[in-house]
């Protein structure tokens, strides 16, 4: 499964990336974490506030840094859906 952190490199974006990293490790879901810094790619997801988190092509949140448990629950739900 692919997990993307969208953001142009501000402090909040880095923090979200670190949180997502922890959440991937904590949930034990096999996920590839990637940073998306190109503006046109960010726009393509319809995001107007960075940072944003995308799990399996779906924008989960934007403009805020969710709690670790929240990210982990998105990951496990997505993993269950994939079977």
């Amino acid at each position: 499964m692919k997990v993307l952190v969208l953001g142009t490199g501000c402090a909040k974006c880095k923090k979200l990336f670190a949180e997502a990293e922890k959440a991937v490790a904590a949930s034990g879901v096999p996920a590839e974490l990637e940073k998306v810094e190109k503006m046109d790619e960010i726009i393509a997801y319809g995001v107007m506030m960075t940072p944003a988190l995308v799990v399996d092509g779906e924008v989960k949140c934007s403009g805020r840094i969710p709690k670790l448990a929240e990210i982990a629950s998105w990951l496990t739900t997505a993993a269950a859906k994939n079977g």
């Binding site: 142009t8 501000c10 909040k12 503006m39 960010i42 726009i43 319809g46 995001v47 107007m48 506030m49 960075t50 403009g63």
Partner: peptide
């Protein structure tokens, strides 16, 4: 509306 100048560009394009 919540706004941070670091999001000015995606917001501008989105609008």
């Amino acid at each position: 509306t919540p706004f941070c100048s670091c999001s000015a560009v995606p917001l501008f394009i989105g609008f």
